[in-house]
Amino acid sequence: MDITVNILLTIATAATPLLIAAIGELVVERSGVLNLGVEGMMIMGAVGGFGAGYLTGSPWIGLLAAVAMGAVFSLLFAVMTLSLATNQVATGLSLTLLGLGLSGMMGTSFVGQPGERLPNLDIPGLTSIPVVGRLLFGQDPIFYISIALTAAVMWFLFKTRTGLTLRSIGDSHTSAHALGIKVIRYRYLSVIFGGACAGLAGGHLSLVYTPQWVENMTAGRGWIALALVVFASWRPWRVLAGAYIFGAVWIGQLHAQAFGIPVPSQLLSSLPYLATVVVLVLISRNKRLTMMNTPASLGQPFVPDR
């Protein structure tokens, strides 16, 4: 029983950064913007979070720094694609490349240093309940943020007027503009929200998952988060399910490696990436589902006429 609980806990820890980054990108894409810079914003969040935590000794300041770092870095993307109407695919790619380089440079002196870890929740009486206690009341704070964030985004997008407006912009920015909606302003805020989420996801990696700084420590998670959004056909609760499936794959292959299953470890390590491809193929085979949910103006630059 204890082993099962432990495995479930590690799956939740592996799924949390994927979930947060993907939920952020979901909002961005719902507003009609495709930001391929998730990996770059995430790694910037990771290095910023680790650095601030390491320098101040407080993982909580690290957490805030991670969020701020992601948000500020995404602003670069926003100015380029929204104010200067650059190609979103290319700009997102360059954000990722820049983030990987910049984080490597900023983190040079952090390599090998012990980091600060965010403490797990510990409520006397509740956390010690057998089995469910640790699952419900004993996880890291970002886990709870991720669940709350998913619920909040779900409520925001589908139950509020502003959420409806945001989705309408994603489906037709010209119509939204004609109705007098501030398309660019909405998109700026969405992109920054996505950046903050990606930064938080990166902070989870360097403040909870493995509290240290390793170059390229995101290891493609930002890209997997992007794939999750497609997999979830732009629905928050499906992102949640997808993130946990991927968390399970990630943990499963680690356990398989630890148990010495007679399969090359490299094959096991490549499973999350192969699973992403397989899942993308499966979901895109269902053309109707994809067509119905893809924000219609996703990735198209918009220049308002006055």
Binding site: S94, L97, G104
Partner: peptide, 20 residues
Amino acid sequence: GISDKVARVFQGMLLFFVLG
């Protein structure tokens, strides 16, 4: 003694400015 990641930063900035 600067990290050779500085190359990646230059490359990333260059692409940003070209697109802009």
